[in-house]
Design a protein around this nucleic acid. Structure first.
Lengths: 221, 221
DNA sequence: CGACCATTTGATATGGATCAAGCGATGTGG
DNA sequence: CCACATCGCTTGATCCATATCAAATGGTCG
């Protein structure tokens, strides 16, 4: 299930019964903000008063380790909600990957839309469970080989982009490397290997055509 | 914060105001079940009607990949609640590491204890956020070197065991290896390295004395 | 056109996996 | 109570996947 689908499902289950999607509901109660490439949205450790819905562009959540290494925990695409990965404080910093627009709203503002507090809690729970599943899937990727990680990443992106066949990668090789726990060189080499195996085509470095879905899926857990 | 503390905090926040801890509250509404070493508690994909509270022993949550590799997602110790890592179905299988006792109760049974449904939702949300944080920490471990992973694992266990200084490992080297994405040989070698560095002592293979906490912490993110 | 940045490609080094053997503790049958 | 089998752990030797170091290529923007 993609995040968009999850959000819709969550809105169904939680009483947005006017037929509107979660994102259009939230859009009405929040302000749209625009961020430029690499601009910080919030920092790790900040109070987590707000939730965010990606309208356009892509957001990365990351941590910097004491020795300077960077760990990218997630990428958020249009329709994804982020900022839920916390109770009192955010556990990651977030930045715009490229220029992007997000809807920002106070957690507490949700209460006025949902009929009764339990609906709000249910929505937050659904979103958190989604985030947990994403993290569990990420863990699964990280115990595998470089080929398996890259294939898994491409399949994940393809599932989320929803235009089956071709993926547009908004993020750099370095972003992907830091997400997969690999180096930029290994990511690049692995992509060329997959291209040589006819599993994918790379019309440009940020576009990936899935040529042999089965071959990729076989590399996946 | 340990899971026990988290559970207590959760019970405070969610209205178990008679001063009892979460686990003793749950104990009253669930049945105690005993499991033998390696006995399955539930399987991946099963309906997730129940929640579980560890009374004694240790439980592992894991997945088996298509090629037979095993991924241990978490260890649960006394005071920990597990089974929340899911909405409709469990995302992992769970087994008793050694013989253990758990309190089992229906999710829905929580409602009768909590005063009003929102309290229940809040409790579930707190537990889920805790699980999410655990997963995020796990991700952080998996992008690091073998030494860093093992050191991080020991520190995590020490924090949870709460008898600072000495850790009792209920799980085998294979369990640890599958949790850390390493081989059993590498886990073993890394532990002996840490022993040679005077960071730990190993009175027996399942007992670890933390001799130089700072050295371990320096290996940690 | 030229400078800059992202990406690819190449050569080499290395950490952890793999293959293999030895060791120690625990339990079982004689 | 001892001899032996078994299991979990450690240690050793070698191999390989990925990191590291280095350079070339390509794409973008002033």
């Amino acid at each position: 299930m993609t995040q968009i689908q999850a959000a819709h499902a969550a809105s169904q289950k939680t009483g947005f019964s006017d037929g509107s999607s979660l994102d259009s509901s939230l859009e009405m109660i929040g302000a749209v903000m625009n961020f430029r490439r690499n601009e910080e949205i919030y920092g790790e450790g900040e109070a987590a008063e707000y939730l965010y819905l990606v309208k356009t562009g892509c957001v990365r959540a990351y941590k910097i380790l004491s020795d300077g290494r960077r760990q990218v925990g997630a990428f958020y695409l249009p329709g994804d909600v982020f900022g839920i990965e916390a109770d009192a404080e955010h556990t990651h910093s977030t930045e715009a990957v490229g220029s992007c627009a997000v809807v920002v709203f106070k957690r507490s503002a949700l209460a006025s839309r949902a009929t009764g507090n339990s609906k709000l809690s249910q929505l937050l729970l659904d979103l958190t469970i989604n985030e947990l599943k994403r993290a569990q899937n990420h863990i699964l990727l990280l115990i595998q080989s470089a080929q398996e990680r890259v294939a898994g990443f491409l399949l994940e992106m393809a599932a989320r982009e929803r235009k089956s066949g071709e993926i547009n990668l908004p993020m750099s090789r370095q972003d992907i490397a830091d997400y997969l726990g690999l180096t930029i060189e290994t990511v690049s080499r692995t992509l060329t290997q997959l291209e040589n195996n006819r599993a994918i085509a790379l019309p440009s470095s940020r576009r990936v055509v899935l040529r042999n879905y089965g071959a990729l899926a076989r590399l996946n857990a």
